[in-house]
Design a protein around this nucleic acid. Structure first.
Lengths: 208, 208
DNA sequence: GCTAACATACCAACTAGTATGTATGTAAAT
DNA sequence: ATTTACATACATACTAGTTGGTATGTTAGC
């Protein structure tokens, strides 16, 4: 009875589990790419992080590029959905956005890494259309989720009617990414704290 | 008589001219780094662009890192001064900033490269303190030039007194870099055009 | 027994850096 | 004025380390 349950639910960690192996490769790949960039990401380092070997990597992914694509589509896109799309689905989007901004960490260790989406976008967009399009899709869906929430908020009289939802969504994202980028370089908590105040002030000014 | 003039003024292009060679290496290095990133920049490609060989490179620069540092300090810092510091030294800084924003190209080919400063800052800041500090100095001076112009504008009653010059300078830079970053990925002129309008609207709202 | 899911060993290409050679400019000595 | 001496300013050829990818072997699970 225990044996049958294992097949779907309690998978032993040390035995064979291709989905779990693939997950570990994606997670390890993401961390490596996040820290060093895609082009400088070392596949041997990815394997060490994941605790597997070359055979496992090239069984699950055709090559380095395919791993990079999967990291975008499955890891980064999912992080974006968790952080932005889902909270924006209900409630007052202004409150939601203020909460997201407010909870942005200003410790040096946190600022240091920057935004996973923007890091990859800046590095790869001019170099590879496969990467650029996949990242542009994330941006488009991010923008769509926010603009949609703005339209709903206007209908529910939570957001000023004179604001264009699309322009505002683009503006909020640009502002946010801009501050995160500057903070990543300056390593100065004061910069990001100033940014958080300014962004929250602006979000407040959007209320109906 | 012509022979003596050559020594300082009319240096023949094909003969020896170490300053000119160094310049060509810096320019070629900048273009290579701008297109591919520092870590992926190929020194052989730099040499081909510059039209010189390894000997020339390693005579003028100790190693790849030293070339990278020089590119930041001499090329990118100078570009920033030309584009921002000098125009901000006199006149109404709001007019100056609006003009800079207005003249930002929205063609795909122009958006594609992104901001040279931000490109390098995003790639290298978490990886190398030598790069990060040199880039942070550019950001600090950029910010200082703008905040200084804002303070002057407040004294001359061109800028609202309720605005904090430091916070405003950081905000303008973050906004600008944010939009440039998004445009680089999206490749959509509409995004940047929307950003230009929003930035100009905001700058107008800063007037006393 | 067969295939999926890996592990191991190896290779070929790329690339930063070096070692060495050489031509040029220049200043002092003759 | 010419030669000598020497440092400068490169060019050429090579090396060593890295790294993405492959070929082959091995084990688990049905």
């Amino acid at each position: 009875m225990l044996a049958t349950a294992r097949s779907k639910l309690r998978r032993s960690a040390s035995l064979r589990d291709p989905e779990r192996t693939r997950r570990k490769l994606l997670d390890a790949g993401f961390r490596e790419v996040y820290e060093r960039g895609y082009q400088s990401a070392d596949l041997d380092a990815v394997l060490e992080r994941a605790g597997v070997t070359k055979g496992a990597l090239y069984y699950h992914f055709e090559n380095k590029e395919a791993l990079g694509h999967a990291i975008i589509e499955e890891v980064i896109a999912e992080m974006t959905r968790q952080k932005w799309h889902i909270p924006l689905q209900k409630g007052n989007p202004i409150d939601t956005l203020i909460h997201i901004v407010q909870s942005t960490r200003t410790e040096v260790a946190e600022m240091r890494g920057g935004c996973p989406f923007n890091n990859l976008a800046q590095e790869m967009s001019p170099l590879d259309e496969g990467f650029r399009k996949r990242l542009a899709k994330i941006l488009s869906e991010w923008h769509g989720a926010m603009a949609g929430a703005f339209r709903r908020a206007q209908a529910e009289k939570m957001l000023r009617k004179d604001l264009d939802p699309d322009d505002e969504a683009t503006f909020v994202i640009a502002m946010y990414e801009g501050y995160i980028s500057l903070a990543k370089n300056s390593q100065d908590p004061k910069l990001l704290k100033s940014g958080k105040r300014r962004m929250i002030d602006y979000l407040e000014s959007m209320r109906a």
